[in-house]
Structure formats: C-alpha cells, structure tokens
Amino acid sequence: MNLKSIVLVEDNPQDEMLTLRSLEKAKLANEIVVLRDGQEALDYLLEPDRDLPTVVLLDLGLPKVSGLEVLTRLRKDPRTRLLPVTILTSSDEEEDRLRCYEGGANSFVRKPVEFAAFAETIARVGFYWAILNEAVQPRRSNP
C-alpha cells in the first residue's frame, strides 16, 4: 500500500525542524511535504492532479495567505472539501479556535512550548491521521 503523505504548512523553520523530528521519532513512514507559506500550500493542494495527503498540519500565522484563509479556500474546493486539516498553532485564543472550527478544521491543536509535550502531541496527531483515521473520498459528480 502506497502511503499517503502528510503536509506540514509551517513558516517557522525551527518549528518545522522540531515537528519533523517529532514525526520522525514517532516512526511514521509517510512522506512529509513541507510548505512554507499559505500561497504555496494552496498552490500545492489545489493542483487538480495532486494526490491528496492523509492530513494537512496547518499553522495559522502564515506569510502571504493566513492559515484560516487557506482552510477556507480548501473547504470551498469540492476536491479538498473533506481533506482532514489539523490546525497546529501557538495560539490558545478562544477566538482562533472558534473560527477554525467554523472554518471546517477537523481539529485544533495548540503547540506546547515544552518540547516533550510538543513532540508527543505531534506524534499523536500524525499517528491518528496517518494510521487511525479512515478517510472518505468526496463523491464525484457524474460528468
């Protein structure tokens, strides 16, 4: 079985490194695609021929197009409408959380400052979406 990839949208290289290290430590075999701003994420994910990842780990504070905007755009496209999106953010603002769920996020995870907690969180998130979750394919309308 060809493992689907995991897409990480993160502009902070340090967080990216820590995230990749955590996923690696969790021994997930999925390919990790790292995208560094919102526009790049949209370009990548909305390309019609693209094999969709198993999950998108999306930061909120992104250059060019914000994470929330990326989420909204993904949910408008029928193809990515049901794509699992997990928000990974430093914010613990209630407001952010609310807007994300309203925007169709599948979950909202605060990045703990403490690395151990962070690593565990990332590992769990990756494990959940990569292994446990049974994805659904959006129905295609007949041509």
């Binding site: 967080d15 820590l18 504070g61 914010s91 690395f115």
Partner: peptide
Amino acid sequence: FSYAVSHDLRAPLRAMGGFSKA
C-alpha cells in the same frame, strides 16, 4: 499585540526548549 505575543513569543521559546531537549 496579544496575538503576536501568543504566537511569536512562544515559537522562540519552543525552539529554545525544543532544541535543548533535542
């Protein structure tokens, strides 16, 4: 400002702690 604090101040801390831990 709060948003910036909550996002942008935490990230370096996480890096400091994270890489120390690494």
